[in-house]
Design a protein around this nucleic acid. Structure first.
Lengths: 133, 133
DNA sequence: GCCATAATACTACACACTTAGGACTATGCA
DNA sequence: TGCATAGTCCTAAGTGTGTAGTATTATGGC
């Protein structure tokens, strides 16, 4: 597997702007640089070319794929939000906590925003775990 | 709050080597550069001065504090592992998931290594949450 | 007090990410 | 078909992190 083009998302590091762009791709399914630029502009007054540079890098990393058959090019996310987030967080948890994630889970149960529905799913998952022991 | 010296750990980004050093400080309570160097050397063949540079940066960031009254200097962690990890992960969760942490929690319940005891604590925390509603 | 040794300070280069300006190109309309 | 415009490509500077070499300083034994 050559550099810049990876099969999946094992161990990933991302910059801030890169992280800000991915959710826009997820929400919209397919985006142009212009679309991302416009969504991002109110919060971060960045140049159009800045967005373009970063989106190209995300494509190079294998996180976005680009259809250059049409102009303007259309970008799509290759990995979904769960896959990418856990890949990035795994890196942190592995290094800082030696892979033990319980503290983190507790933190988010206590301080994270979570709907009733989401909590039910978590309870369920927890019961599954206990059974499997 | 001037640059390089922050009160706490709201929103933190860290490099890989920086993340590898912090747990060594946590485990040992107080460490010298030499100690960290020796713990790290088998896995990462890095120069002594590399470790020194990074530990100094960590002190500058406010994650370690240094006692330079004695030689060799003694470094101590200023933030604990939970505080730092959640600060780093919060950054990622906020940007990639808009702050919604349920997916992440589910991921770790399913794939994270976790003791029986830890799972009990999680179950308890979950029940607390339900009550508070 | 002086020297060997161990530790720290200073400096520097490489790479990744952020940022963006200017050059180049393609598309549609006159 | 040629020009205006929108879009992409190329290039580059600034910052943070990883990496480490060389210079300087401090400590302990003689």
């Amino acid at each position: 597997m050559g550099p810049g083009r990876r099969k999946s998302t094992a161990k990933m590091s991302m910059g801030h702007l890169e992280m800000d762009i991915m959710p826009i791709a997820w929400r919209n399914g397919a985006v142009t640089v212009k679309q991302v630029f416009e969504e991002l502009y109110p919060a971060r007054k960045l140049a159009y070319t800045t967005i373009m540079t970063v989106m190209k890098r995300l494509a190079h990393k294998g996180l976005l794929e680009v259809d250059d058959q049409t102009v303007p090019y259309v970008y799509r996310a290759v990995v979904d939000s769960q896959e990418l987030t856990t890949a990035v967080v795994d890196e942190v948890v592995d290094r800082l906590l030696g892979g033990s994630s319980a503290t983190l889970v507790l933190h988010y149960l206590k301080h994270g925003k979570m709907s009733q529905e989401e909590r039910s799913m978590i309870t369920l998952a927890l019961e599954e775990q206990v059974k499997t022991d």
